[in-house]
Design a protein around this nucleic acid. Structure first.
Length: 282
DNA sequence: TGATGTGTTCTGCT
DNA sequence: AAGCAGAACACATC
């Protein structure tokens, strides 16, 4: 499942492969919901807008990918659960779930590769907006702070500003952006905080630990090119390797690394939470 | 065959 | 107002 480290890995992969290239052709094979064109384009098609545009840079906001194109146009993508960008040879067979295929001008590039947006579950999105309006779109404008940028003081302030269970809060993109189930469970485990603990009832000391731990975990996961417990792959098809460092997520029934008690898995805030009931007390 | 899980958005409840 | 539950989305997997 792509969360911040996986999305960051994809962004870095796109920077290495397609920045500087000019789009020469776009083919789509997607349900209407998967590809959205902003109203200011007045009914023009996705492919006609993209044709001839040069990819200038690629950035990330939370779990969102922003591909900035020439003429102040931004291709905004969210991978949801199974979305992928793959940079592959034009000869590689088109897959059933390749929803969009981008060809590039040859120019000086001789690779003959193309970029494909593939999504088996079709929850992922590609959206086109003018760069000046993209940040005001629903899904981007209400995002909370970036976890790798927030200071410890801001972090403590954020947690004291509300009273809600910490696990659902961490998953709430408007509370803090980019964290999903894997890294929420991992950071709460290392900080020894129960997932149902209320945000404003966590001690300052524990909050500082949580702040430090999730920065450390996210950074280490990025360095390992993400976590592949399911189907996640980077732009070149490579899996991540952070799964070998998981201590709580996907370890139901296995011994806690601190006390050997079994890790439990329980629905909290309608999402499964993995934690050690002995180390993480309410 | 049917339940499950996954991120996000939406609706409706308290 | 804020937070929560549940549904919906689409599909593979078990």
């Amino acid at each position: 499942m792509p969360e911040l480290p996986e999305v960051e890995t994809v962004v870095r992969g796109l920077r290495k492969t397609v920045v500087g290239l000019t789009i020469s052709k776009v083919r789509t094979n997607a349900p209407a919901a998967s590809i959205v064109v902003g109203e200011s384009f007045k009914g023009r098609s996705f492919s006609s807008i993209l044709n001839g545009k040069t990819i200038q840079d690629v950035t990330r906001r939370g779990k969102n990918i922003l591909i900035n194109l020439s003429d102040n146009i931004t291709l905004w993508s969210h991978l949801k659960m199974t979305g992928r960008f793959l940079y592959v040879s034009q000869k590689s067979p088109v897959q059933k779930h390749d929803l969009a295929i981008f060809d590039f001008n040859d120019g000086s590039i001789k690779s003959g590769n193309q970029l494909r947006f593939n999504d088996t579950r079709r929850f992922g999105r590609l959206r086109l907006y003018r760069s000046c309006e993209v940040n005001n779109q629903k899904g981007l404008k209400e995002l909370g702070p970036e976890p790798l940028e927030i200071s410890s003081a801001e972090f403590i302030k954020l947690f004291s500003s509300t009273s809600r269970m910490v696990k659902p809060a961490l998953l709430d993109q408007s509370f803090i952006a980019g964290i999903g189930n894997i890294y929420a469970d991992e950071s709460l485990f290392l900080s020894k905080i129960h997932p149902q603990k209320l945000t404003n009832k966590i001690s300052r000391k524990k909050l500082l630990q949580l702040h430090r731990h999730f920065k450390r975990i996210l950074t280490k996961a990025i360095n390992n090119m993400g976590t592949s417990v399911d189907s996640y792959q980077g732009v070149n098809g490579q899996p991540g390797s952070f799964q070998k460092y998981l201590k709580a997520y996907d370890r139901e029934g296995k011994p806690c690394i601190f006390c050997a008690h079994k890790i439990v898995r329980e629905k909290i805030g309608s999402r499964s939470a993995h934690y050690c009931p002995r180390c993480q007390r309410l």
